Simulated scan of single mutants.
Amino acid sequence: MNAEPAPGPRPESAFDPHATSLDGTADPAVLQELFEIRGSIDNIDATLVYLLAERFKCTQRVGRLKAEHELPPSDPGREAAQIARLRRLAEDADLDPAFAEKFLAFIVSEVIQHHRAIAGRRD
């Protein structure tokens, strides 16, 4: 009998933080620095995944509330305000505002699909 995996974070045992196709093509000291920088990137990526999971938990709650009160899945006024806010934040953070807007648009599109699905289950 196979035991269910424990809830929560799972070990990244299959992930090799030193995976590269650059072995033998660069100075080992350069590769070491590259691995250190990539380690920071890996930590940020993991944080982003968990933050997105938390964000989607909140948007699921919004979707249920909207469905209960027969509100539309999307809110163009809210979305426009969020885009403007995110563009300002991106500029302050020295991030390309167009990229930040595309990123938010992707997330909002997913959220709206979830809200439609929640509303469909209530019908």
Rank of each mutant, 00 (worst) to 15 (best):
E79S: 11
H18C: 05
P17T: 05
I118T: 15
R122F: 12
L65Y: 12
E79R: 12
A84Q: 12
L52N: 12
D23S: 13
E54N: 12
L95K: 00
V62N: 02
P7R: 12
A98R: 06
I112W: 02
P28T: 10
D123V: 11
E4A: 15
T25Y: 14
K57R: 15
P17K: 05
V108L: 11
A98S: 10
R64H: 07
D42A: 13
G8A: 06
F106W: 11
P76Y: 11
M1P: 09
L104C: 01
D42L: 08
P76M: 11
E101H: 04
A100G: 01
E110A: 14
A105C: 04
V108D: 07
D94V: 01
S40V: 08
A105Y: 00
E36M: 05
R10E: 14
G63T: 01
G77S: 13
G63D: 02
D75V: 03
P28K: 11
P5H: 07
V108A: 13
A14V: 06
F99N: 02
H115T: 03
I118R: 04
A93N: 03
H115F: 08
R121A: 14
R122S: 07
I107L: 13
E91G: 09
R55M: 13
R55Y: 14
K66I: 00
F99Q: 03
E70H: 15
E68P: 00
F56R: 14
R38G: 01
A29R: 14
A93M: 06
A100P: 04
I118M: 07
R85Y: 13
F15E: 06
I41M: 13
E110I: 02
I41V: 14
A3W: 11
L71C: 06
A81F: 05
I37H: 10
L22P: 00
Q82D: 10
A100F: 03
A26H: 15
R85C: 07
T47F: 09
L22D: 04
R61S: 09
E101C: 01
V49L: 10
E79K: 06
F15N: 05
A105N: 11
A93W: 03
T47M: 12
Q32Y: 04
P28E: 14
A3M: 13
G39I: 03
L95H: 03
G8D: 08
P73E: 02
S13P: 00
P72V: 04
F103M: 12
D75R: 01
E79T: 13
R10M: 10
D123F: 04
S109C: 04
G120L: 07
A90T: 02
A100L: 01
A90N: 01
K57I: 04
L52W: 05
E70N: 15
R88M: 02
L52V: 03
A3K: 13
V62T: 12
E33G: 12
L22Y: 06
D45N: 14
